[in-house]
Design a protein around this nucleic acid. Structure first.
Lengths: 174, 174
DNA sequence: ACCTGAACACCGTTCAAGT
DNA sequence: ACCTGAACACCGTTCAAGT
């Protein structure tokens, strides 16, 4: 006898995204997600293989959301960098999880594409990939350090970000 | 009646470092550490407050080890970058944990000092901190992406590292 | 003083039984 | 077909009792 579905993979992932921002990555338990979507924990196994798959699904949703924002930001590297930073500030735990779960390659590629395209414009096709990696590595590392409090002491973090961005753009232009 | 100590905080932290490299961060359980140092799990609570404190202690040990290697590397930014990368390759899980645990500020400062000093030589005292943040953010982000497999496809990763390093040094020189 | 077994709460996961 | 309670294994943590 068929029964109506009481939740969905989308609702489960959305619940996971909300939970990590409130309770941190350790709060992402099967029971917390189940309670939030209104089922019992065992029911989640109809939609996700295990907790690790749920972590990956939540991380992938974050990468997809980031990709959407980057695509809307256009081809300007400064705008892309600031969009990236705004995203990280808005969803710090989702941002962190992106680098702590095995996000499928297609999702990563989609979020990388706008940066690679902008770099191709700046340095030409031949060096576009290397330049995009330079740019993305800097932005990612900066945000990770900013969020983890590595910049706790000294200096203006906004100024350090703009300094890095300016230097990088100059380097790519040179 | 006093009893002889059957383990030590150093042995516990060393066991934790070994465990994460073999079994990953999820393998760092109180029971696994206890077994490795030859006591029962409850005994660990004589030396560490809880599992999170153990994670922090292991991460801090990694930062200290990194700082020691950076101090020995000298004042050349290229050498510092390659030393950092060699360290990350040798202890990938220890490297990742450094950014996923609340390492005390003094440890972070000690590992940052060699880079700040090298940057002061390169760009002067006024911009040394911003330059060090640019440099460290790039290297950290690059390694994190390299280790997490974000560079899985396309291009030579070694070449991308050297490309980024060259561009950054040029930028700081300019 | 440090160590341990026992106990408890909590979590991930499976599965037979419900609808 | 999906959902659930019950069950099991495993883990973090506490604590009284041992030496």
């Amino acid at each position: 006898m068929p029964t109506p579905e009481r939740t969905s993979i989308d609702a489960i992932v959305a619940a996971g995204q909300e939970i990590i921002e409130v309770d941190g990555p350790a709060g992402l338990t099967m029971q917390a997600v189940a309670e939030r979507v209104g089922v019992r924990a065992p029911s989640l196994y109809k939609r996700v293989r295990d907790r690790e798959a749920l972590r990956v699904a939540v991380a992938t949703a974050s990468v997809d959301a980031l990709a959407t924002e980057l695509e809307a930001a256009g081809d300007d590297l400064s705008t892309l960098a600031r969009t990236y930073r705004t995203f990280a500030h808005a969803h710090p735990e989702g941002f962190r999880l992106m680098f702590n779960a095995a996000v499928p390659h297609e999702a990563l590629e989609r979020s990388a594409a706008p940066v690679i395209r902008a770099c191709a414009t700046a340095v030409g096709e031949a060096d576009a990939l290397d330049a995009a990696r330079l740019f993305t590595a800097w932005a990612t590392g900066f945000l990770q350090m900013e969020l983890s409090g590595a910049f706790r002491l000294g200096g203006d973090v906004d100024r350090a970000f703009e300094y890095g961005l300016r230097r990088l753009l100059a380097s790519l232009a040179g």
